[in-house]
Design a protein around this nucleic acid. Sequence first.
DNA 1: ACCAGTAGTCTCAAAAAGAGACCAGCGCTA
DNA 2: TAGCGCTGGTCTCTTTTTGAGACTACTGGT
Lengths: 136, 136
Amino acid sequence: MDGKVLNLKSKIEIYKAMTDGANFADCPVRDVIQGINGKWSPLLVMALAEKPYRFGELRRLVPDISQRMLTQTLHELQRDGYVHRKVFPTKPPSVEYSLTDLGRSMFVPLYQLVQWAERNHDAVREARAAFDDAQA
Amino acid sequence: MDGKVLNLKSKIEIYKAMTDGANFADCPVRDVIQGINGKWSPLLVMALAEKPYRFGELRRLVPDISQRMLTQTLHELQRDGYVHRKVFPTKPPSVEYSLTDLGRSMFVPLYQLVQWAERNHDAVREARAAFDDAQA
DNA sequence: ACCAGTAGTCTCAAAAAGAGACCAGCGCTA
DNA sequence: TAGCGCTGGTCTCTTTTTGAGACTACTGGT
């Protein structure tokens, strides 16, 4: 882990040198992370990693997403190359969304994070409770 | 990876059964992920993984964050137990932010995702360009 | 003839984020 | 000694994002 932190430190130094400033606002990684990092994106990627879904199926699977945000988030995921959109010319045309190879590749580390969340949500819940108690 | 997807599938089934519905809106993992998943949270965690920083240092390091969002995001990270806030009673009191053990633990999978972004940002950029060209 | 399901779009209201002024207290300097 | 800047914030106002829900067009079933 120390090695990783050292790598990060070097990267920050490199970015500082590259941008001739003292920041890493223009970091290309930020750009990519933002795309994964929306409110609904990880959830939809998780769902589509299981199997392809149609629009309405996703809407039912994630009932607290609005149609508007579902459309928009899928559009962004498609634009970034994580999701493939396939239209079936049935009478009411249906649309199937699935992960691309890039999406499946991104899912691997995303899933690591989800597993961490799964293992540690008790700790986070306790930290929140302790913090809120201390405030009150 | 197939094993992981299968695990995910099982989890979705379990959630469906647990919530007696056809969704996983009440998934506790979502709650944890949301905390990590803000616009600025991953960036600040990355910075603090390098070394502790003071408020003003973070502000200079990430120049496109507003003071308001910096305060708020650090507050949330502290509440969720990722970040420790230490006040030094110097003349103008200074405040040092550092990762807790929980924060360092969470940083491990987060860093995996960042590394993925680093390796694949070219692919994402290309996907975006291709998509935008197809639209135009 | 009417209702449900297909995948969306459009509009309007609510919530979140960004920009920038303001605060108190101290050290430095002109 | 009067101003200036640095410390870490908060407060207010504006802009952007999100959410809620109506509306579209087409078809199959009752």
